[in-house]
Design a protein around this nucleic acid. Sequence first.
DNA 1: GCTCGACTTGACCGTTTGGTCAGGTTTTAC
DNA 2: GTAAAACCTGACCAAACGGTCAAGTCGAGC
Lengths: 220, 220
Amino acid sequence: MNTGFDSGQSEATRGNGPATKIQEKNRAKILDAAFREFAAFGYRGARIEQIAAAAGMSKSNLLYYFGSKKAIYKAVLADLLDTWLAPLRTLDPAGDPREELSAYINQKIELSARYPEASKLFANEVMQGAPMIGDVLAGPLKALVDEKAEVIRQWTAEGRLQAVDPYHLIFTIWATTQHYADFATQIRALTGHGIDEAGFRQEAERSVAGIILNGVLGRE
Amino acid sequence: MNTGFDSGQSEATRGNGPATKIQEKNRAKILDAAFREFAAFGYRGARIEQIAAAAGMSKSNLLYYFGSKKAIYKAVLADLLDTWLAPLRTLDPAGDPREELSAYINQKIELSARYPEASKLFANEVMQGAPMIGDVLAGPLKALVDEKAEVIRQWTAEGRLQAVDPYHLIFTIWATTQHYADFATQIRALTGHGIDEAGFRQEAERSVAGIILNGVLGRE
DNA sequence: GCTCGACTTGACCGTTTGGTCAGGTTTTAC
DNA sequence: GTAAAACCTGACCAAACGGTCAAGTCGAGC
């Protein structure tokens, strides 16, 4: 399934050509480097030359593959969106709420651990008002979230979940899990650890899932 | 109480002069405009001329008050830190955990509602590795968080709280509350509402506090 | 109303930015 | 092998950037 986001890329890969080996390799190197640059500095802060240097090629050559800064940015975002939203799609109405939500939280935390740049990049784009992916948020994403919110509402109706607003629950899960990537610097300053460490990651998963599923107050 | 962050400002206000009315007014206008600019685009993405335009003055005049881009940024951050970290200081060991945590969550959400730019700015700085406030995080902030973590640990020891890691609990609260400011665009795209609306804000407060305090699973 | 310091400006400077282009090199197809 | 296409580069450009400066305006105190 695709998010329906048009990356706007069409340089080098004329029309829909087969894409040569060398093209494939270089486009991948560029996207990887651009990923980190855009994630760290945002769209305006990113420097095309720095991306080229990180990708190990000249600025001119980079612009041969992607005709403009905006084209690189769009390509990076398109690459990101699918993998970033994938875990939510796995939420299964037929499953057990505890297991489903717990698995979803763990998937999201592991995604934040493996692709912290992706999390930061997404955050940066949204924080600036989502100028590039605003229509994806309002379209495909909203459709997906509405669908899953209905699943959660159903669970509540069946008495398998406390009465909680589904949207705020989803926001809570997104916020907590992505926090470990976006605010990694702060977390490391305060605890000395990061989710790149397996032990700390498991501790985070257990804590977050525990809080969201059971709360912090004992049973009265 | 101060965070101990040196803003590095010392232009115009020679030494520690009285600061004239006009100075006070202009510095305030600049900081307000810079606040929004830095929050929206990050340090590198921010444009000094755009700040000046938003503040209603020439770029030259802005540079008369703050000698450099970095000086403005530091001044903005210094302004931000105190108010941003204030709510955590109010967490009272002698109080009831439910009321204390609930009040803290509400304070943080209301702060995000009133100063969404502050939240975004803080997020931006930390996401870039906290190059400017890294020492504040590792120093005064860590001290404060360590102190409050001990309070939470004490509550747990007294059996008034589930066994939960205090640091992850604090991160969870920070993440969820600030999410409503940082990801306002996404939330608005999905729900049609924002925390600037009183009704939605109360709904968010109730949901977040409910989840964190009681979890989403019914008592077994 | 004069004076001195605070305030404000537009013109200007060196650097960096995103992007172009002519021309050279390598790979691919036959 | 050779020709065409794909790939790559350095030189170059206009615009935008952060910042300086000389010169002028304004306002408070006398």
